[in-house]
C-alpha cells in the first residue's frame, strides 16, 4: 500500500515539477497541467482507498480483539467448569441409609391386597372417631367443640354453658376420654332433659341411635379384644388350660375320630343286640321243642299207664301219675308244672 501511495505521490510530484519547470521556462503546456490533474485525481482515489484500507484494518484488529476476548471467555468457562466438576466430585455427599430391599409386585396383587385390607383400614361411612372431618382442626379442638362428634353436623344455636356440655356428653359419649371431658353430672338425666326441653330440634339421647346407627361408633385400626379372645390363640390357650398338648392336636380331627368311635361302638352294640336276639330265639325254639317232646313223652307214658295200669306199683309213681293225669285234664297249667319239674 505504501509503495502504491508512494508511486502516486511521486507521479504527482513529477508532474508538478515538470509543470513548474515548464512554467519556469515560460513554456507552459496544457498537457502537463492535465497530467498533474490526472495524477492528483489518482492520488485522491488512492487516499480514499487508503482510508478504506485503514478502516478495514481497524475492523480486523477489532475482530481479532473480539476473538481473543471470546477465546479467553471460553477458556475461563471451561476452566470454571472443570474446577466446578472437580469440586462437585470432591464434595462429601450425605450417604443416606439404604432404603431397604425393594420387592416387585403386580397391579393386580396390589389391588387385591387393597381390597382385602380395606375393611380394616377404612372406617365405615359416618364414623369419625370424634374427629371433625369438615375442618382441618385437630382432634383436641374437635372434641372440645360440642356439636361435631357423631359424624352429623347439627345446626344449633349456642346455648347456656350447661347445655352444650350435655350435648357433648352424648355426642362424644363413646369416644374414650376427650381431653375436655364434661363433668360427670353433665351425663345425668336432668341435664339431658334440660337440653331436650330448651331446644326442640335436639333428639333426646336415648333416641339418637335409632336415627343414626353409627351414632357414637368408633373405628379401631387393629384387632379388637373380642377378636383376639375368639381367635386361634385363645383356643390354643384353652387347650393348654385343659391340659392338652396342642402340638399335633387338631380338634377337627379329634371330633372326627370321636364320631368314628361312636359310630363303631353303635355298630358293635347293634351287632351284639342282633346276636343276643338270635341267641334268645334259638333258646326259645329249643325250649319249645323240648316242651313238645316232653309233652309227647308224657302222653305216651299216660297211654302206656292206662293200658298197663299200675305196673310200677310204687305209690309215689302212682300218685305222680295221678297228678299228671289230673294236670293233663287241666291243660292250661300244664306248662308251669313242667317248668317246676
Amino acid at each position: 500500500m505504501d509503495k502504491y501511495l508512494d508511486a502516486r505521490f511521486e507521479r504527482v510530484e513529477k508532474a508538478l515539477a515538470i509543470l513548474i519547470d515548464s512554467i519556469a521556462k515560460f513554456n507552459p503546456s496544457e498537457k502537463l497541467a492535465d497530467d498533474l490533474a490526472t495524477a492528483d485525481r489518482q492520488l485522491s482515489k488512492s487516499l480514499q482507498e487508503l482510508e478504506r484500507h485503514q478502516n478495514n484494518h481497524a475492523r480486523i484488529q477489532q475482530l481479532r480483539a473480539d476473538t481473543a476476548a471470546l477465546d479467553a471467555q471460553t477458556k475461563d468457562t471451561i476452566s470454571a467448569l472443570w474446577g466446578m466438576r472437580k469440586e462437585v466430585k470432591n464434595t462429601a455427599t450425605t450417604t443416606y441409609p439404604p432404603t431397604g430391599p425393594k420387592y416387585g409386585f403386580t397391579t393386580a396383587e396390589l389391588l387385591n391386597y387393597a381390597r382385602r385390607i380395606s375393611r380394616n383400614t377404612l372406617p365405615p361411612p359416618g364414623i369419625t372417631n370424634g374427629v371433625d372431618m369438615n375442618t382441618t382442626s385437630s382432634f383436641v379442638a374437635s372434641a372440645a367443640s360440642p356439636f361435631s362428634g357423631g359424624g352429623v353436623k347439627e345446626e344449633l344455636p349456642s346455648q347456656d354453658a350447661q347445655t352444650p356440655n350435655a350435648n357433648a356428653s352424648f355426642n362424644n359419649g363413646n369416644t374414650p376420654a376427650p381431653t375436655t371431658a364434661p363433668t360427670p353430672t353433665a351425663n345425668g338425666q336432668p341435664a339431658n332433659n334440660a337440653s331436650f326441653a330448651s331446644n326442640a330440634t335436639e333428639l333426646p339421647a336415648h333416641l339418637k341411635p335409632y336415627v343414626n346407627p353409627t351414632e357414637g361408633g368408633i373405628f379401631l385400626p387393629w384387632p379388637t379384644e373380642d377378636t383376639i379372645r375368639s381367635g386361634a390363640l385363645a383356643s390354643y390357650q384353652q387347650l393348654v388350660n385343659n391340659g392338652i398338648n396342642p402340638k399335633g392336636y387338631d380338634p377337627e380331627e379329634e371330633e372326627k375320630r370321636k364320631a368314628e368311635e361312636e359310630l363303631a361302638r353303635k355298630e358293635a352294640e347293634e351287632q351284639a343286640r342282633l346276636e343276643r336276639e338270635a341267641q334268645e330265639k334259638r333258646v326259645r325254639e329249643e325250649r319249645e321243642r323240648l316242651a313238645r317232646e316232653r309233652e309227647r313223652a308224657r302222653q305216651e307214658e299216660a297211654r302206656r299207664g292206662n293200658t298197663v295200669g299200675g305196673v310200677s306199683g310204687s305209690p309215689t309213681t302212682g300218685g305222680d301219675m295221678q297228678k299228671k293225669k289230673q294236670f293233663t285234664f287241666l291243660g292250661g297249667d300244664d306248662d308251669d308244672d313242667e317248668d317246676d319239674e
Partner: peptide, 20 residues
Amino acid sequence: KYGGFTRFEIELEFVQSLAN
C-alpha cells in the same frame, strides 16, 4: 397342626394382635 391351626395361622394372628 397346633390346636387345629398351622403355625402360620397362629403367628399371623399373634403378630396382628400386637397392633392392639
